[in-house]
Amino acid sequence: EEAIQNFKALLSDMVRSSDVSWSDTRRTLRKDHRWESGSLLEREEKEKLFNEHIEALTK
């Protein structure tokens, strides 16, 4: 649960536009030290959280 919250915070800070792809964003996020705290999450979970974040940005 904490890993999810940390990853959501990372997305909020780093992803402000809804027209970015997961693969491009992932490359950028990996450069942030907080990426490692999400290592407990599966890749699919990270992508799902990313997609939810993008959906929220479009509303």
Rank of each mutant, 00 (worst) to 15 (best):
F7H: 06
D24Q: 09
V20K: 08
S12M: 11
K46T: 07
L49F: 03
K46W: 07
L29P: 02
V20M: 11
A56D: 11
N51I: 07
L29H: 03
R43T: 15
A56R: 12
L10R: 03
V20I: 08
S23C: 05
A56H: 12
K48W: 03
L40K: 13
E52Q: 10
F7P: 06
S17E: 09
F50K: 04
R26A: 15
I54A: 04
L29I: 06
K46D: 01
H33G: 12
K59E: 06
N6P: 00
H33Y: 09
S23P: 08
E47N: 03
K48D: 10
L10F: 13
K46Y: 14
A9M: 08
L41S: 06
N51S: 09
H33E: 10
M14A: 12
S23K: 12
V15D: 01
R27K: 14
R27E: 15
S21A: 04
L41P: 10
R30K: 14
M14G: 05
R27W: 03
K48L: 08
G38F: 15
S21P: 07
F50R: 01
S21E: 08
R34L: 03
S37H: 14
S12V: 12
I4Q: 07
L11Y: 02
L10V: 04
K48S: 08
V15W: 00
M14V: 12
H53F: 01
E1G: 07
K46H: 07
F7I: 03
D13L: 02
L29R: 00
E42Q: 14
L10P: 04
S18E: 09
T58E: 13
K8I: 04
W35M: 07
A56Y: 09
S23W: 05
M14I: 12
Q5P: 02
N6A: 10
L10A: 06
H53L: 00
A3K: 07
E52V: 02
L29E: 03
T28S: 13
L40F: 05
E2Q: 09
R27T: 07
D24E: 14
E52L: 06
W22K: 07
D24M: 05
W22Q: 06
E2C: 03
Q5K: 15
E52T: 06
S18C: 10
H33A: 08
N6H: 06
S21C: 08
K31G: 10
S17I: 00
D13N: 04
E2T: 10
Q5D: 08
E47M: 02
Q5N: 11
R34A: 04
R16N: 09
T28G: 07
Q5Y: 08
T25M: 12
A9C: 06
E47R: 09
A56W: 10
L49A: 05
L11P: 04
F50T: 03
E44G: 13
L11N: 08
K59L: 10
S12C: 09
E42I: 09
T58D: 13
S23M: 08
S17R: 12
K59G: 10
D19R: 06
F7G: 00
K46R: 11
E47F: 03
K48G: 06
E42F: 06
V15H: 02
S37D: 14
K46N: 00
E1N: 00
L11E: 06
E1C: 11
A56F: 12
R43G: 15
E1Y: 00
W35A: 05
K8V: 04
V20S: 11
S12T: 13
T28R: 14
K31Q: 13
W35Y: 11
K31I: 04
K59W: 06
G38I: 12
Q5R: 13
S21L: 05
L49C: 05
L41K: 04
L49K: 01
S37W: 11
R16D: 09
I4M: 05
S12I: 07
A9K: 13
V15Y: 00
T58N: 14
N6G: 05
W35L: 02
W22N: 02
G38H: 10
L41N: 03
R27I: 08
K31Y: 06
R27P: 10
Q5I: 09
A3G: 07
L11R: 02
